[in-house]
Design a protein around this nucleic acid. Structure first.
Lengths: 225, 225
DNA sequence: CGTAAAACATGACATATATCATATTTATTA
DNA sequence: TAATAAATATGATATATGTCATGTTTTACG
């Protein structure tokens, strides 16, 4: 089994603040597993009882709305932690986590994380910083949802994916989502998402090949109204 | 000057976890001030350099969107802390705070709060819990913004105010907001907010007398679609 | 490989909401 | 108290977006 103290992934999250002996302790009780694309890691209302450290892959965090549509709230990527919030608030999670592609994750039991939170002030301060950052992002999303058009939000989503996932050698986005996923990020009907992507394509802002999307005119996307 | 260790307000926020000697220390460096209705406590981009403890009154936290509209993200009330997030992330605040009515607040300098965060694990854990709770709320708001109609959001706003501020002897909401404020909470045009409130009035869901609003049929408001 | 299912695409139409215009009422202040 | 500004109200209209229908393409899988 791989060892936390030798894992470079932890450099990207709060676990970087832990010292060697703590990491060795975590190594001893963590479990590693693979999650296939489309698999549910946890569902709304479940007790997670721990934290996932994402070694590879991407998953989407979503929440079901009253009308039956799933709103995607966050994409969690390699290097991120998953499940800290419900661990801290000691409540069942309010979100569903589904693998967007094949993933490799480590699961660290709740009591271990709690131990470190209570005994390592650097760890809890770093966690606080992460949450403050998440809250700031959430504020921005709320303002966008409330005040921007669907078309603007779609353009921003494409730019976000471009900035955070980059492109492959052909120039297409390094993350592949369904049109329904796009709709559920933007907060619109799937047909509307498809329509807007088609329109962007006609206008030369993007090109598509099946699910693969290439941003052809980043500056124009920034100017979409 | 009043003393933190005798102030009952702190029972409602994370300061409740502090011990007597810490509270006495805070008492020595805090400043108390009154803020008049409409006054800006801090503005987007400012360095706050501390935390406000709300002794009395209500203020609105808002963020200006690109199109020039102000989105209200949270109402901060008596007993709440204000400004923790930018203190923790050590960045200028992303929000504006404006008094909704006359307020009395205590200001505690940044280094004092940081000291307690680093030296009192109960305090930082409580702060973490608060933030986790705020994040959960933000998730719900995002889903509502993305998936619910303006009418539903207005109904929910009224119910939120009803639950959190209660009513006076005449039955009208204990918090008085302008129609523009309602629009900026719901995320709609001021005219639309006015129109929907008028419609609710015609349908007997609420009654109004100037800025005073009374919920006449709470159950019907819950069923608004 | 062929068939079924899922995803994608697009038209037609309904409707919620924004915008602009213009009263009317209420609050502010000279 | 009068004058002015701000807030509230409501109509008319434009537009963005959702919904329903239908067809096509892609994917999954027996």
């Amino acid at each position: 089994m791989s060892k936390c103290e030798q894992c470079i992934i932890r450099q990207f999250n709060s676990l970087k603040t832990l010292r060697k002996d703590d990491l060795i302790r975590l190594s001893g009780c963590k479990t590693t597993k693979t999650v296939n694309k489309g698999e549910i890691i946890f569902d709304e209302g479940e007790n997670i009882n721990g934290v996932y450290c994402i070694k590879d892959g991407v998953c989407k965090l979503s929440k079901l709305s009253a009308n039956g549509k799933d709103q995607i709230l966050k994409l969690v990527v390699k290097g991120d932690l998953l499940g800290q919030r419900s661990l801290i608030s000691d409540e069942p999670t309010n979100l569903r986590a589904v693998a967007v592609n094949d993933m490799e994750v480590c699961f660290i039991p709740k009591q271990e994380i709690i131990y470190d939170l209570k005994n390592n002030i650097d760890f809890s301060m770093d966690m606080l910083k992460d949450m403050a950052e998440d809250l700031r992002t959430a504020d921005n999303v709320i303002v966008d949802m409330a005040q921007k058009s669907v078309k603007q939000r779609m353009a921003e989503t494409l730019l976000y994916l471009y900035d955070n996932f980059g492109t492959d050698e052909k120039g297409s986005l390094n993350i592949v989502l369904s049109r329904e996923d796009y709709a559920n990020i933007v907060g619109t009907a799937t047909e509307s998402a498809i329509r807007i992507l088609s329109q962007f394509k006609k206008e030369g802002l993007i090109s598509t090949e099946g699910k693969y999307i290439t941003l052809e005119d980043v500056e124009a996307l920034k100017r979409v109204e």
